[in-house]
Amino acid sequence: MLYFVPTPIGNLSDISQHSLEIISSCEIVFCEDTRVTKSLINLLKTRYNLEIKDKIFYSLHSHNEESFLKNIDIEIFSKKCVYMSDAGMPCISDPGVGLVKFAQENGIEYEVISGANALLLAVAASGLVEKEFTFLAFLPNLGKERAIAIQNALNSPYPTVIYESPKRILSLVEDIVKLDENRKLFLIKEASKKFEKKFFETSLNLVKILKDENLNGEWSVVVQKSPNSTVERINLKDIEELEIPPKQKAKLLSKLTGENSKEIYKKLTK
């Protein structure tokens, strides 16, 4: 059995009882950094007076995931195994997706435990998200790709959540100002930690505020949805009414319906 266990993103008390039970009793631990995970388990052991079963630790992260899983003995999953990221929910801008796919492909029973997650914390605290939202995680660091990602966030019909480092948080807001100085942004620094701090302002005002702030820490940003963008879903009638060649129209209809494009073409040209 394989468990994906979320770890506290700041406040050690955010660990669930369910997670503590699994961590205490598991035999195998897959994790990003064995030193970080061993330290966390020792802290939990002391805080909650846990009896911790002896464990074997394996480092499994984005750089070695493919080769590690290619060579792993699948029999290891007959034991009680966990995957723990350094902080937060596995697979959400953290390693673990490859292990989930491996479990699915090999019929390994697995369970994801609920717990701390910076994304949902930012969404709930922002006041900008009523239903749908877009999650971009960390943007590209430099160049055209970063500029396009920022533009996409501002053009989105949904609020957009971004993770950002202390080195780039000010430049991110400055780049947004260049495109829309009145766009509302929600920023949260060091979520759930002792020095958590929230900001909710226009991008222009936030630049002024952040220049006087200590920017050290982990940041989550929620960008207000575009005031000029609406979501319009294309339906079959929309395509049927397009003044385009039947062959192109058949291909578009095939994409939406899954029906064979040649059969659609025959119907269109009768």
Rank of each mutant, 00 (worst) to 15 (best):
G258Q: 06
F195V: 15
C81W: 10
V177E: 15
E243Y: 11
N214C: 10
N106G: 03
I15L: 03
N106S: 05
E164M: 09
Y265D: 09
I56R: 15
F138Y: 14
L50S: 08
F135I: 02
N235G: 05
G10I: 06
R168P: 09
L154R: 10
D73R: 07
L40F: 05
E259G: 01
C26M: 09
N141R: 15
S24N: 03
Y58L: 02
P166V: 08
F4L: 11
K247Y: 12
Y110V: 06
K79S: 15
T37N: 05
V231A: 09
S126V: 00
F138C: 10
R183S: 08
I22G: 08
I28S: 04
V231W: 04
E240G: 07
F57K: 12
L206K: 06
E213M: 12
I169M: 03
T230Q: 03
K266G: 07
V173Q: 09
V222Q: 02
N117M: 02
A153C: 14
S203W: 03
M89T: 13
K45M: 02
T134F: 12
K80Y: 05
H63K: 12
T257Y: 05
E241W: 05
G88T: 07
P227R: 06
P159E: 00
L236C: 07
K189Q: 10
L185Q: 03
Y3R: 14
P90N: 08
V100R: 12
E218R: 14
L268K: 11
G88H: 06
V112M: 15
L139N: 01
R35A: 11
K38W: 05
Y163G: 12
S39C: 11
I244F: 10
